[in-house]
Simulated assay, not measured.
Amino acid sequence: MATVAEVKTAIDAALQQIADVQAAVQAATERLGEAQQTLAGVLEGSGHETVDAAQASLSQANQELEDCLAATLAAVEQAQLYVATL
């Protein structure tokens, strides 16, 4: 069975991995926003339903990235609360 110190070390390592993922998600969110702006600028006034569908899909992807970030923040909070009880 792992010692308390080993558990804390493992949790710290996992939290660092989560921080890395959060940074990647934030970068992806920024890049996605830039892509949305580029697409909107290029296709402004098109009115074609596929353009609207593409924009809607990008908006959905952005929301899902935000949901992912929120979920990781909640996971970090719970892990930190657990570590505090050890």
Rank of each mutant, 00 (worst) to 15 (best):
T3F: 08
T3W: 07
V4C: 07
V4L: 10
A5K: 12
V7N: 06
A10R: 12
A10Q: 07
A10I: 03
I11S: 02
D12T: 10
A13L: 09
A13C: 00
A13V: 07
A14E: 15
L15P: 00
Q16P: 00
Q16M: 09
Q16E: 14
A19W: 05
A19Y: 03
D20Y: 07
V21E: 11
Q22N: 12
A23D: 14
A24R: 13
V25F: 06
A27F: 01
A27M: 02
T29N: 10
T29V: 07
T29F: 11
E30F: 06
R31V: 01
R31N: 08
G33C: 00
E34V: 08
A35P: 02
Q36F: 00
Q36I: 06
Q36M: 14
Q37D: 10
T38C: 03
T38G: 11
L39Y: 15
L39V: 10
G41V: 03
G41R: 08
L43S: 12
E44H: 11
E44Y: 10
E44S: 15
S46L: 01
H48M: 13
H48A: 14
E49K: 12
T50V: 15
T50S: 12
V51R: 06
V51S: 09
D52N: 14
A53T: 11
Q55S: 14
A56E: 09
A56N: 09
S57W: 06
S57R: 14
Q60E: 12
Q60D: 13
A61N: 01
Q63K: 07
Q63S: 11
E64F: 05
E64S: 08
E64K: 10
L65M: 10
L65A: 04
L65P: 02
L65Q: 04
E66G: 14
D67R: 08
C68F: 15
A70M: 05
T72K: 12
T72A: 08
L73V: 04
A74C: 03
E77K: 14
E77G: 03
Q78M: 13
A79P: 03
Q80W: 02
Q80R: 08
Q80C: 02
Y82C: 01
Y82G: 01
Y82I: 01
V83W: 00
T85H: 00
T85C: 00
L86N: 04
